[in-house]
């Protein structure tokens, strides 16, 4: 058992199709498989909810309270309702939440422990925000916003926008990866080999507490933070700095 096992996972290279050995063309098998599992769970949940919505009161209640939670969150930042923005924010939240808590199913790993996943989520949110800003305010005032408050602030504005992408994705990656390593190392390495310690870990509930804290609670919190920051950047881009 080695801690590196989490870091170096299996890679499929598709670069040989066009004679390239560059790591850009490698596909990380673990990440792709786990992401597909997450997407499958989301699809099944969505279809099941749609089927049960007219039949079961409890499902309807849960569905309505989840939607209301998001509607409150949305209405606190936006003055007008837009279905596109609302669906974007809610789907980001659902996807990241399921990605973070997927490890409570045996034999799975969180796809967010791969930097590629979180960085692409950050880039998606960034590009969506910029396009929404251009649509809302026009191309000219979007370009002009880079030169505010003074002309010489332009490089700092550009670096600041890029730093927001990096910090939002590395925050998610670092927290989830750190939590996964801590709970996995504790369970796999620190107490393995000694039957007494393993029994102690299982019976005293420390294993369960570690998994619940780092898997479920931290996963929910980080998904919430990512969604909140995206929502704030989006509302700033759409309605300007004074439009709250």
């Amino acid at each position: 058992m080695n801690g590196l096992e989490l870091i170096t996972d299996k890679q499929w290279s598709v670069g040989y199709l066009f004679n390239s050995q560059h790591p850009f063309f490698n596909i990380s098998v673990h990440t792709i498989t786990n992401t597909w599992i997450v997407l499958g769970i989301i699809l099944v949940l969505a279809l099941a909810t749609r089927w049960a919505l007219a039949r079961n009161g409890i499902v309807r209640y849960l569905y309505l309270s989840f939607t209301r939670f998001f509607l409150d969150l949305y209405n606190q930042s936006f003055t007008s309702f837009s279905m596109t923005h609302f669906c974007f924010i809610a789907s980001i939240f659902i996807f990241i939440l399921l990605c973070n808590i997927i490890s409570i199913i045996p034999w799975t790993e969180e796809p967010t422990t791969d930097l590629n996943t979180t960085l692409s989520l950050g880039i998606i949110a960034f590009i969506y925000t910029q396009i929404a800003g251009i649509k809302a305010e026009g191309l000219w005032s979007y370009i002009k916003s880079y030169f505010s408050p003074f002309f010489i602030m332009m490089p700092l504005n550009v670096v600041g926008k890029l730093a927001s992408v990096i910090s939002i994705s590395f925050r998610l990656f670092g927290n989830i990866f750190g939590g996964a390593i801590i709970s996995k190392l504790w369970i796999q390495q620190a107490i393995s080999g000694s039957l007494l310690l393993e029994l102690f870990g299982i019976l005293s509930g420390i294993n369960l507490i570690l998994t619940l804290f780092f898997g479920v609670f931290e996963g929910f919190l980080q998904a919430f933070v990512f969604t909140m920051l995206t929502l704030t950047y989006l509302s700033l881009a759409v309605q300007g700095e004074g439009g709250h």
Binding site: G174, N175, G178, G179, I181, I182
Partner: peptide, 11 residues
């Protein structure tokens, strides 16, 4: 967050 990142880096 700060402690989790520190633990990750030291591991």
């Amino acid at each position: 967050t700060a402690a989790v990142m520190g633990a990750f880096v030291s591991m």
